[in-house]
Computed example of a mutant assay.
Amino acid sequence: MNPDEPVLLVPSRHSEWVRMATEMMNKIRQQVEEAQLEHIGSTAVPGLPAKDVVDILVGVEADRVRSVSGHLAAIGFDLEGTLDHHCWLSHPSRSARTYVVHVVEYKSRAWRRRISFRDLLRSDDKARAEYLHTKIEAAKAAKNWDDYTQSKTSIVSSLLSSTASKEA
């Protein structure tokens, strides 16, 4: 999926996406010592329509985020962006994405939020339905990948906040 094209959601192919995630995590595991890996995003949620791109979360020590990202770029991943303690890469490239790999500090806020959101969508039918509605509307309105992602930010925060308040 090209990041400058409109976003297209496809019906869930959960078992295929899980297989793809497992294969990519095995590839990364061979390259990145002591990394923690998780399949995240909508492709990690059974039955949820998604962009046909599998998201992988790679957790490492904070001081290794950039070096691990650089290593992945050196072996064929496309380094798209870097922030403090978060880098993201596409595979095979940003113009033909099959995977997006997020490298973050293990157990950091970024790590915990992504895992918590995935787990919430897996376990809460109401949250999943609300998120799906937002995804569909965002895909219709977004001009590109970034617009789509930004359009979902508030619902992600809202759903995570409501979960945190229930647990408190």
Rank of each mutant, 00 (worst) to 15 (best):
I115C: 15
I115N: 05
I115W: 09
I115A: 04
F117I: 05
F117H: 07
F117D: 03
R118Y: 08
R118K: 14
D119Y: 08
D119M: 13
D119T: 07
L120P: 08
L120F: 14
L120K: 12
L120C: 02
L121H: 02
L121C: 12
R122K: 11
R122I: 14
R122N: 06
R122A: 01
R122G: 11
S123E: 13
D124N: 12
D125N: 10
K126M: 14
R128D: 03
A129D: 09
Y131M: 01
L132P: 08
H133Q: 13
T134P: 03
T134E: 10
T134S: 13
T134D: 02
K135M: 12
K135H: 04
K135V: 00
K135W: 01
I136C: 02
I136W: 01
I136P: 03
E137R: 14
A138G: 05
A139Y: 10
A139F: 00
A139E: 02
K140M: 10
K140Q: 15
A141F: 11
A141M: 12
A142M: 00
K143C: 04
K143V: 06
K143M: 11
N144Y: 04
N144W: 07
N144P: 03
N144E: 10
N144Q: 03
W145C: 13
D146H: 11
D146C: 06
D147P: 02
D147I: 03
Y148D: 03
Y148S: 00
Y148V: 05
Y148M: 01
T149K: 05
T149A: 12
T149Y: 00
T149D: 04
Q150V: 12
Q150W: 05
S151E: 04
S151A: 15
S151P: 00
S151C: 05
K152L: 08
K152I: 02
S154H: 06
S154I: 10
S154C: 01
S154Y: 05
